[in-house]
Computed example of a mutant assay.
Amino acid sequence: MEHVEAVVIGGGQSGLAAAHALVRAGLKPVVLEASDRTVGSWPCYYDSLTLFSPARFSALPGMPFGGDPDRYPHRDEVVAYLTAYAARLQADICTGRRVIAVGADGCGFTVELEGGGRLWSRAVVAASGSFGRPHRPDLPGLETFAGQVLHAADYRGPAPFAGQRVVVVGAGNSAVQIAAELARESRTSLATRAPVKFARQHLLGRDLHFWLTRTGLDAAPLGRLLKAPPAPPVLDDGRYRAALTAGAPDRRPMFTRLTDDRVTWADGTTERLDALILATGYRPHLPYLAGLDDTLDPAGHPHQRGGASPTHPGLEFVGLEWQRSLSSNTLRGVGRDAARASRRLAAHLARA
């Protein structure tokens, strides 16, 4: 069993930010990435995806986005950026190494790999994100619905749905973006439990993220104060509000039931439905921690305080939604949490 100074599980944006911070703290991390690329889930997002924050506010620590800092980078630009970022890291990055279990072993942790192999370390960072665990709500009749059902994680573009009747479930940025895109090719409705909330993309001639950064709200430690963090509003430059106002897509209160190939709406009307797309978010994907006592709650969410495990010193989390702030699981914010985690781990190792 190989002994290493620090293990980072996940080679996407969170894992790369964690590795960068650990190196700056004087440690030698080993990054374990299950796939063959250090780009996280970005290649799997829908084709038209662009960031909601400008390039100048969307970089990881130590390497700005190239090009126009006020543009909104496309999905493929993010993939290229993360690839270049990983190439510059002074860390041991191992792709094709899936972690299947982390266990407590004396004053450290054993990290078991798929296909054999074990590492031992006193410092572990869980940075595997949430894309591997899309949330599928328990909707009435969903299990017997005969139409196509897919999560936003599996959606790529509108072409396969041309001419169909489609309902998108969700009220967030992705739900509204996908529904508006589909409405150009199909008859699409957006089903939500409450009216969609919008936030203006630009205020006083500046992108909203300029003001979030200038006021400090973007980095404010709100995660521990909010038992139920609010759903973020849809960032809009006017296009999406106008699309919903024009009924393309139309927004409807949540349906009451799915039966066979039909949907029943809150007003009692029913109609045939071809496809249902669930833009209902994700949950932390941490199956490898299931055997580590008192680490996850029954729903699979980690027990953590600002990213630190309260029960297992030396175990840190990076990239959780609302871990500390509203930007904790974003390109622009994950670096702050990674830096805090690395400082705690450096102090932990120094106490050996």
Rank of each mutant, 00 (worst) to 15 (best):
R239L: 11
A341E: 06
R252V: 14
A84R: 15
A123W: 02
R133P: 09
V318M: 07
D250P: 00
R165Q: 08
T83C: 11
H303V: 02
G132L: 01
V125I: 15
V169D: 01
S58N: 09
F65K: 04
H301L: 06
M63K: 07
R193F: 12
S121M: 10
V176C: 14
V196C: 14
F255S: 01
A275M: 02
V30W: 06
P230M: 09
M254Q: 12
V196K: 13
R224E: 15
Y155W: 12
A350E: 07
A175R: 03
R156G: 03
Y45L: 11
G223D: 09
P140K: 06
Q13V: 11
R257K: 14
Q177M: 06
D218H: 12
A248I: 04
V125F: 12
G223Q: 05
G12A: 15
A86G: 07
R88I: 09
S48K: 05
L212S: 02
T256G: 10
G319E: 04
P140L: 02
A152W: 00
T259S: 09
A308R: 05
T95H: 03
M63C: 10
E5Y: 08
P230N: 12
Y155S: 00
G307T: 11
R340T: 10
A242N: 05
G319F: 04
F210A: 08
V31H: 04
T280L: 12
I100F: 10
A228C: 07
L139H: 01
S48T: 15
L51N: 03
V102F: 04
A84F: 08
D250A: 14
P73N: 13
P61H: 11
P232M: 04
L16G: 01
R239V: 10
L258D: 01
W211K: 08
H202C: 12
L51V: 02
